[in-house]
Structure formats: structure tokens, C-alpha cells
Design a protein around this nucleic acid. Structure first.
Length: 590
RNA sequence: GCACCCGUAGCUCAAUUGGAUAGAGUAUUCGGCUACGAACCGAAAGGUUGCAGGUUCGAUUCCUGCCGGGUGCGCCA
């Protein structure tokens, strides 16, 4: 029997079958299979320990019985050993490695193999979500980059993914903006760079309408006109949204992002009365100080900290729209899961929101999707403070990406100049490479770190050519491609017939790493943490570099050459597939 | 005041949610290009996992209490 894509779950099934043969299945035996430290094996099963403890048996003996009861095919594919207090170690035999690597030969085939995990599921991913009439700044980067990677991971695992940009396109700030627009708009500036001008007006409007001022009353009047459908104000508001979206798309294009929907807060305007009615009727919401709020008596904090869903003046807020959004996604998109990617400061809000949604849907017998708030830490400068320009302003995302490309270009051009004349690349090619390396470095730096912690932004670290960085991975890709190019071979049609099983320590280490791709993707997706995939790709690139330094690929012996080309090719496929899952563009040369 | 997140090698970070001797990169020291990209590889050294208890075969991980940093807590989103 061929080794399937998911080796860990294959072992899990085999161990469960053995447990059931021993009569342990209904006593709650859990195999607990995971990727092992290479010193011990490729995979390990730890389940014997917990089981033995519960059953008051000797864990070594339990593990030995498990091994004895395992299907013969497992013993054909793995070397088994017991260690320590009762760990079962599995080491793939070279022939099994060769079989797996031979079968998983392209990005489409990897995709097909992984797609069984979430086939038939629909996931709505809500990320980026900037406010219209304002430029995107560095604070918007993580949501966009992490959200896009999660979309790709979920898609890879077989889900239908709906990318929804939940724009901040409604609220009191638009009264102020219209107020300022009508007084101070500079038409020439608007034509030249619309969003720049809108942002200027936005700041003017905010400054001109302090609390309790007559100007604030006028701004509120503009808002009321907008909400009541005044044609002039609605047209202005529409214009603000259009130019904002066009500006956002320029950023998204550079990051490889394309949304299916831009359903901002305004979209839910006419869907709020239902929210108020159903939450009031079911007794989940209550009046308090004139506002409509939800308390959660079972929660230590939210029993007294209210979830405000309608303000005392009758206006909606983001509690209202987020509730309407949740029911829309559940009903219209038939979502099995909803992922919302925002920074950790909104954790309370979404905890309250999810508690409320669950009670609401249960009371009305609506099907409740899985609800996930994917949080991430702040982006700080190297001083640990929020990232700002020297003058103290927020850093615009556009300028940040420009700088990434410029810095990458300087590195690429310098390296290119050192090359011998015939291998030198054109300036245009250098520019193109710099775009992929610079943007990729920014994306990767954000993804490689566990998203819960704060992230220290450092140009030098993200553009370093060594360490866990995009340039290191892209370099590994370029080196594999270079072998094929120099040998005059087409990487789409690698001549790998007659490849023999891996033999040298570096070949074996690389082959084992390749097989673990399935596990890395699964962990990253299930935990909604792309850094697990980053770590894997870094280790894969490291295994390849070790192999490359130790074992020459283009040798005379045809079987050795074929098996090394096979390893090179599968490394290329896996690295590129992984980097594409993260949203990075890969290169031929760099 | 209440709550959440973070605290791991000099620095930047991992540790697959309770598993084996806590791992990488960087910086430091040493070694390797007449091998297909040295933007690389190999090796050494670097630790009381903030502190103090507790739970158990086993704790960076779970519980309690402190210390330090960040954040949130009714009409912004």
C-alpha cells in the first residue's frame, strides 16, 4: 500500500486500528501522533503514556503491545522503536520516502492531495478592512498579509473561501469629512491624488469640529442628510468610497490580494432593525441608560461590561453592524466558518460579539458557523514603540512598500555587478527581482513570527539573506532552478526515471523534510497560524542547502543523478507551493 | 480597580497546545569555493524559560500569587 499524503494521519489510523484490535478503542485510547525530533525518528506516537497511566498499566508494555498489533504494512514502511517511558518512534524507510516523493510531483497534485481536509466547507475571511477616505498605513499591513495567507491555506485544504473586505465606510466621521469638503476642497489636489486630499480634509474636518462647537452641529447635520439620502451628500460619500477603493487596490495588487466582496459597514445599514428586534425579542439584549446592550451573566467581566449594540441616540455602532454582518455571512454565504483578522486590541469586542451571536443563533435555531478572531500583536520600531516616521507621523503603507523595493534593488544590483559579464542581468530584470524580494521580505517577516506577539520592524533583518527570511527562501528556489538551467533541463519535465531511494545522510534528511510538508500545512491551517508553514519552509531550504553542499547533483552515474534531480525538483515544487500559499511571488533568478 | 496578551541564549524569535537532552537565526570564534549560485555549508560557545509556590511519570506549556512591558474596559471602529 502506498504511503498517503498525510503520513501522520495515516499512522493515527493505523494505531487506532491496532488499539481497537486490543480492545482499547472504547477505553479512549488516543494515538497522539506528531512530527518527531529527527534524533528520534520522523514521527512519534505518545498516546501509550496517557493511556497506561489511566489504566494503571506499565507504559512500556502498553507501547510494546501497540507495536505488536500494528498492521504489517506499517512495518514495511517504517522502522519502529520504543524509547523512554513509552514513546513509539517511526522512521520512514528509504523506499517509502522514494514512493511518497515520486507520487507528489507538482503543485496541482499537492493541492489535490491536501484538498480532502476541508472539501465542501465555506469560509468567510474578513481582513484588511481599512477606513475609506484614509490612506492605508503600516498598521494595516499585518491584517492584510496574514489574512491573505489564511485564505490561501484554507483554499489549499479544499475550502471555498470568500474574501470579504469589511470597510469602515460609515459613521460620524463622514459628517465631518463632508463638512470640510464643502468648505475647503482643492479640486486640483483631488484630481492629482484623491486620497491624499481626502485625508487632508478629514484632518481639517476633525480639527474644525471640537466637542460642543456649532461646527460639530453642522457636521452632524451633514451626516443626517447623508443618512436620509440627500443626493448631494450621497454622491460625495460614493465618491469617497470609489477613490478609496481604487487607492487600496494599488496596494493590494502589490501584495497579491483581490477581494471577492467589499461589504463595508454601510452595506448593513438596512439590516440592523432585524438585529435589534431579534435580540430584544429573545431577551438577549436589554435597555440600559437609553442604549440597547447585552450582558453575559456567566462571564466574569461581561456580566458588568456591556456589549453596546445601539447607542442612546438610536444610532448604530460597530456592535450593531458586526452582528448584522455575522448573520449575513451565515445566511447568504452559508459560512461554515468565519475568520476575522484584526489586532489584539479588539479582542474584548469580538469575544462579546461571538458570545452574543452564539446565544442569538441558538435562540432562533440558526446554524452557527465556527467563529474565529485571529488576533495579532502591534508592529513596533526597534525601540519597542509604535512604528512612526521621524516626524512622528504614521508610516504610509505605499511608502513602506516603495522603500522595501528600493532597499531590495540596492542589494540585487550590487550583487549583479559582482557577477561575471555573461551571467549579468538587465536593469529591468533587477527591478523585477527587487519587487518580488522587497515585498516578499515584508510579507514574510510578518508571517514568520507567531502572530500573537508584537512584531519588531527591522529592514536589516527582513532583507537579510540568511536566517528565516524571504530572501533566503527565494535564493534556495533560484539555486535549484539554476541547476536545471545549467544542465539544460526543463524543471517541468525533470528526467527522474530510474531514480533510486535516498542514500546519503543529506539526501535522507531532505527527503524526510519533503514528506513533512503535509503536516506543516495542516498545522498552519488548523491553528490559523502561518508561521508554522514558514518555519517548515525555512527548515526545508536548510535541508536543501546542506544536501547541495554535500552531494553533487550533475554526476555521471545515471541512477544517482536521477535521484538527486528528483530531490531537487520536489524541493523546488514544495518551496514554490509553500511560498505561493503565503502570498509570495517566486523567481527564476535573483 | 477589573480583565486580556507578552516575558525563553547578548539581540530577534521557535518549541506542533502536557512529552524525550528547550531549538533556530544573528552577533563572537574556528573551518570549507579549479562543485551545479559562498546571498551558501560545517563546527564551537552561548539557558535557573521574569520570580515563588502548586498539580504529575513528565511543565516554557496547566493552576495560584507576585514583578515588569503592552492593551482594553457605554455610546470611535
Amino acid at each position: 500500500m502506498d504511503l498517503p499524503f498525510h503520513v501522520a494521519s495515516h499512522l493515527d489510523s493505523a494505531l487506532r486500528a491496532a488499539a481497537s484490535q486490543l480492545g482499547w478503542a472504547d477505553r479512549g485510547f488516543q494515538p497522539e501522533v506528531r512530527v518527531a525530533d529527527p534524533a528520534h525518528g520522523d514521527f512519534q506516537a505518545n498516546g501509550a503514556l496517557a493511556f497506561a497511566k489511566r489504566e494503571k498499566q506499565n507504559p512500556r508494555a502498553v507501547a510494546q503491545q501497540m507495536v505488536d498489533a500494528l498492521d504489517a504494512s506499517v512495518k514495511d514502511q517504517f522502522d519502529l522503536s520504543l524509547a523512554g517511558p513509552g514513546f513509539i518512534n517511526f522512521r520512514l524507510k528509504p523506499a517509502a520516502l522514494l514512493g511518497w516523493i515520486t507520487r507528489h510531483d507538482s503543485e496541482p497534485h499537492l493541492r489535490e492531495a491536501a484538498a480532502g481536509e476541508r472539501r465542501g466547507q465555506t469560509w468567510v475571511v474578513d481582513y484588511s478592512s481599512p477606513n475609506t477616505a484614509k490612506q492605508m498605513h503600516v498598521g494595516h499591513l499585518r491584517s492584510a498579509v496574514i489574512g491573505e495567507a489564511l485564505c490561501r491555506l484554507l483554499t489549499f485544504n479544499g475550502a471555498t473561501v470568500i474574501r470579504d473586505n469589511h470597510l469602515g465606510d460609515w459613521g460620524t466621521q463622514f459628517g465631518k469629512l463632508i463638512y470640510a469638503y464643502k468648505r475647503w476642497v482643492d479640486e486640483a489636489a483631488l484630481a492629482a491624488d484623491a486620497i491624499e486630499e481626502l485625508e487632508r480634509l478629514y484632518k481639517l474636518g476633525t480639527a474644525a469640529t471640537p466637542d460642543d462647537s456649532p461646527a460639530l452641529d453642522e457636521a452632524r447635520a451633514e451626516l443626517v442628510k447623508l443618512q436620509n439620502g440627500d443626493p448631494e451628500n450621497v454622491a460625495l460619500w460614493k465618491k469617497f468610497s470609489d477613490v478609496s477603493l481604487a487607492a487600496f487596490q494599488q496596494i493590494y495588487d502589490r501584495l497579491g490580494i483581490r477581494f471577492d466582496h467589499n461589504l463595508g459597514e454601510s452595506f448593513y445599514n438596512d439590516k440592523l432593525t432585524r438585529v435589534y428586534a431579534e435580540l430584544s425579542d429573545t431577551g438577549i439584549a436589554q435597555e440600559s441608560e437609553g442604549a440597547l446592550v447585552v450582558f453575559h451573566p456567566e462571564h466574569p467581566r461581561f456580566k458588568t461590561q456591556p456589549f453596546l449594540i445601539r447607542k442612546a441616540d438610536g444610532a448604530s455602532n460597530y456592535g450593531s453592524t458586526d452582528l448584522a454582518t455575522a448573520v449575513y455571512r451565515a445566511e447568504h454565504f452559508k459560512a461554515d466558518g468565519i475568520v476575522i483578522v484584526t489586532d489584539f486590541r479588539q479582542a474584548d469586542h469580538f469575544e462579546q460579539l461571538f458570545l452574543t451571536v452564539r446565544k442569538w443563533f441558538a435562540a432562533k435555531s440558526y446554524r452557527t458557523p465556527e467563529l474565529h478572531h485571529v488576533t495579532f500583536g502591534a508592529v513596533t520600531g526597534e525601540d519597542g514603540k509604535a512604528l512612526k516616521t521621524r516626524s512622528g507621523d504614521v508610516i504610509r503603507l505605499k511608502l513602506l512598500l516603495d522603500e522595501a523595493e528600493e532597499r531590495a534593488y540596492a542589494l540585487v544590483a550590487a550583487k549583479n555587478a559582482e557577477r561575471p559579464e555573461p551571467e549579468r542581468m538587465s536593469d529591468g530584470e533587477c527591478r523585477d527581482i527587487a519587487r518580488a524580494v522587497g515585498i516578499g521580505a515584508v510579507q514574510y517577516a510578518d508571517l514568520a513570527q507567531n502572530r500573537s506577539s508584537n512584531y519588531v520592524f527591522s529592514w536589516d533583518k527582513m532583507l537579510a539573506l540568511d536566517g528565516n527570511t524571504a530572501p533566503y527562501l527565494l535564493y534556495a528556489v533560484a539555486r535549484v532552478r539554476s541547476i536545471f538551467r545549467k544542465a539544460g533541463l526543463d524543471p517541468a519535465q525533470p528526467p527522474v526515471a530510474g531514480a533510486t531511494a535516498p542514500e546519503t545522510p543529506q539526501e535522507l534528511a531532505l527527503a524526510r523534510k519533503l514528506v513533512q510538508f503535509a503536516d506543516a500545512v495542516q498545522v498552519a491551517t488548523d491553528q490559523l497560524r502561518p508561521h508554522f508553514l514558514c518555519l517548515y519552509l525555512f527548515e526545508l531550504a536548510g535541508a536543501y542547502s546542506g544536501f547541495y553542499a554535500a552531494d553533487k547533483v550533475i554526476v555521471d552515474d545515471p541512477s544517482v543523478r536521477a535521484r538527486r534531480l528528483l530531490l531537487c525538483h520536489r524541493t523546488l515544487v514544495t518551496l514554490e507551493t509553500g511560498l505561493h500559499l503565503l502570498g509570495l511571488r517566486t523567481l527564476e533568478r535573483m
